[in-house]
Amino acid sequence: MLPLVRVDRIAKTFAGRRAVDDLSFQVLPGEVFSLLGPNGAGKSTTVRMLIGVIRPDEGEIAVSLDGKVSGVLPAARSAYLPEDRGLYREIPVLRTLVYFGRLRGLEKDEATRRALAWLERVDLLDRKDERVDALSKGNQQRVQLIAAIIHRPLLAILDEPFAGLDPLSQEFFLDLVRELRRDGTTIVLCAHQMDLVERVADRVLLMNRGREILSGSVPELHATIDARPHIRFNLDEGASGSAFTDDPDVDSVSAGEGAGEVSVRLRPGSAVSGFLARAVGRVPVRSISTEPPRLHDVFVRAVREDDARRGDFAS
């Protein structure tokens, strides 16, 4: 399958700092491709180069649409929800959406029709004539997203769409991403909420300090997850988890986030039931829970290893 977007060894430097460094990737038609990474990893700079707001100092970006290849995304066929986003607060919701639709090339009537349909879809139709600043932050984000995709783009770039949203709104945005993909829109999703991303992304690319440090499909990355059993204890007041360190099945013990919380990782192949039987006999335990392996851990480990490696090189 021919890629919709091909990014080839791009780099960007700001005031002597390499924000993006020798980055390459491809986005395939119809997929949800996620750019992940901690704050300052270079995701937003990469996205800004994709949409043509800034240009790469090195490398090349090629967009293949309708059999033509160009260096920038055509505004009429693409959508962009920036991380730094906002709307004209004093303008009514419907007028705002129609304006953005018309800027994207829609005729006024068509822009109005689509805006009304979207507002109905997100339960904001009855508030179409209200000023944008009369809406809650979550609803303003919905309006913002509609403004970005009102023209039914082929490719949508969403930069941190989950930022500042409550769990219900996050679920709404996840549903919307799925819906867009179902309708044939290719999506580039930039985020740092790994748990949310792994629920919708087909492929991910993890960046750190401007470079790729890990990439692949979500199942491929899951396969790299540390499969060692991971158990969380909540101990009685005054009890200590140090007693676990003597157990032959225990690989590592670490303090949890709350008071009395202890995380225990067992050696590969250890029997969980045997360890638990010994553990509750040694230490007074209030509750026990197990954690499923998460992509989050893969990313945290990869970023830390990359930081350590580069720190070593730097020193």
Partner: peptide
């Protein structure tokens, strides 16, 4: 005001 409202990037991505 547009800069402070962060409207800028949404528009420059289009026109």
């Amino acid at each position: 005001g547009e800069k402070q409202l962060r409207v800028t990037e949404s528009i420059t991505a289009i026109i």
